[in-house]
Structures are given as C-alpha cells and as structure tokens.
Amino acid sequence: MVPPLAIALSTTFFKDRWTEDERNAGLVNYIMGLSFISEGAIPFAANDPIHVIPSCVIGSAIAGGLSVAFNCQLRAPHGGVFVIATVSNWPMYLVSIAIGAVVGCLILSTLKKNK
C-alpha cells in the first residue's frame, strides 16, 4: 500500500516536482494504494527509477517494520482497507502504513527536482 500512497501524497503536496499529467495520475494512486494495488506506482518508477524506487522501498520497509513491531497481522491476502476488520491491532496497522507513506513521500519529494 505504501508506494502508491507515497506517490499520491508527493504529487498532492509537492506539486512543483511533478508535471500536470503526473499530478493527475497521482490522484488515482490514493484509491489504488488504499485497495492494496501497487501497480499505480509502476509508471512513476519506470519514468524515474533512481528517485522513485528507493523512496518506495524505504517507506515500505519502515511500514513493514512498524507493523511487525506492533504485532499486526493481516489475515486476508489482499483487499487493503476493505479487509481492515481482519487485521489484528488495526489502529497501529493504519499508523504503520501512514508513517511509511509519509516517509516515502518526503524522501521522494526531497530527491525529485522541480519541474
């Protein structure tokens, strides 16, 4: 969930680093990220792998580490926020995802140059 959410946040809050088309495409990543669909990040990673991939990896690693530290368990293999009822310690699961997405967004937005 973190890569598309990090990109969506970056395209929303750091508009000067993205073209208008990229900003519009970034909005779709909110829905895709919350649905556990990471494919929304692929076009961004393909266009700028040097900046996008490390940012997404670091944000995802932080989210994963936090969810383990908070003893969160997702019992459904897919579904995003739609299966939140199957997550143990779901409040901290959401916090983990939010922190990972924000960290990924900040790293990505710091690495990207203004358009």
Rank of each mutant, 00 (worst) to 15 (best):
P77L: 09
G100V: 01
V81L: 11
R75M: 14
P91S: 06
G65R: 13
S67P: 09
L94K: 11
V95E: 04
L94T: 13
S88Q: 11
S55M: 00
A61H: 05
C56H: 07
I62Y: 09
C72V: 12
F82G: 05
V57F: 08
A69P: 04
A98W: 11
L66W: 08
I99T: 10
L66P: 00
G80D: 00
I62F: 08
S67F: 13
V57G: 00
A61T: 14
G65E: 12
G79P: 01
G79Y: 02
W90K: 08
S67Q: 14
S55A: 12
V87P: 08
R75D: 12
C72I: 06
V83W: 07
M92C: 08
G80W: 02
S60F: 08
Y93Q: 01
G65T: 13
V57H: 03
H78L: 05
Y93V: 02
I58K: 00
W90D: 03
I53P: 02
Q73R: 15
R75W: 14
G64L: 10
G100P: 05
L94V: 15
F70W: 12
L74E: 10
P77K: 09
W90S: 11
M92G: 10
S88M: 08
Q73P: 09
V87C: 05
P54H: 05
I62C: 01
V68S: 13
C72A: 09
L66N: 02
I53Q: 03
N89K: 06
F82W: 11
S55Q: 00
V95M: 07
N71K: 15
A61G: 14
S67I: 08
R75N: 15
G59L: 01
W90T: 09
P91E: 03
C72N: 14
F82I: 02
G65F: 14
F70M: 02
L94W: 10
M92E: 11
P91L: 04
A76K: 12
I99D: 05
A61L: 12
V68F: 14
S88E: 12
A63P: 12
G65I: 10
L66I: 01
T86I: 00
C72H: 12
I97C: 01
S96R: 06
P77Q: 11
C72L: 06
I84R: 07
I84P: 08
G65H: 13
S67M: 14
I53R: 01
P91N: 07
H78A: 04
A98G: 11
A63Q: 09
C56Y: 04
P91A: 05
